[in-house]
Amino acid sequence: MIEAQSVSKRFGSLLAVDQLSFSVNPGEVLGFLGPNGAGKSTTMKMITGFIAPTEGRILVYGHDVENDPIQCKQQIGYLPEGAPSYGEMNPLAFLEFIADLRGLQGAHRRQRLDYVIDKLALESVLKQNIDTLSKGFKRRVGLAQAVLHDPRVLILDEPTDGLDPNQKHEVRDLIRDMSNDKIIIISTHILEEVEAVCNRAMIISRGKLLADDTPTNLAARSPGHNTVHLVMGDSSQAANLATALEQLDPVSAVERLDDGLSLKAIPDAGQEILPQLQQLLVEKGLAPCQLYVQRGKLDDVFRSITTGARP
């Protein structure tokens, strides 16, 4: 388990991280969300022991990152931002170097190397200089390095940046595969990524924690969440239904579109209207041509939280 206890980081006059406290348990895939410069990377650098907090402390499975750095670093696999590595090496030599520094030996070393090379599809470039590889391959070499020693804690700074959609999909599968018994923290500003792999999301802006919830709950804070869109067969049916819908308790507003056939039922915050709507349709013997329920968009919530506007 990772515990951050009122951690702050100051660079000169800039307060990059401001009194951040949280804890993460095994099995959690935590997504750090935030605009550029929000303090995501700085927080990750502090957890991995690359920089020391100005105030507060961080414990990784009970070990203080500052006082017991080697113990902590052994438990952590880290992909720094931009996936740096040694360009003049080839991926095989690079991974072997990491395996040695991680203390992997014998058959286990061989098996872990084979595993990551296979998982990240590096076989075809093993003997090429890392400098000459594409951005996607460099990123995968960085990921391979991070997961090589099967760490209990995995910290990935923008793990899918620069990957094509197929590669993104594979990396997300990899993260999900490993998420059972590990602590995984990823930072990203791709919101679909949070919805795809994370079971917890923290929105950080200007070094402050603004929201900490499951991605689903966060999305539900979006204003359009659970709005029902309907298209009826003719305009009299639409008018009829609109009047009836306005009487329903959880409905806050009904909007009719210009075509006269479409309407939109917006619920009160946090309410669902679909069950009552269905009952209503049955009672009135109406059959809509189209019906769909709009899900909240993390995008909207993210934007409203990080720009200070109300959702």
């Binding site: 650098k45 991995t48 022991g49 690359f50 750095p69 080697i70 670093k73 052994q74 952590i76 880290y78 720094p80 931002e81 931009g82 740096p84 590595s85 040694y86 360009g87 990491i98 520094l101 991680r102 203390g103 390095q145």
Partner: peptide, 14 residues
């Protein structure tokens, strides 16, 4: 410059 110092310094090496 290349940022690999971040990788090196977060590996278990003093």
């Amino acid at each position: 410059k290349s940022g690999s110092v971040e990788l090196l310094m977060t590996l278990p090496i003093t």
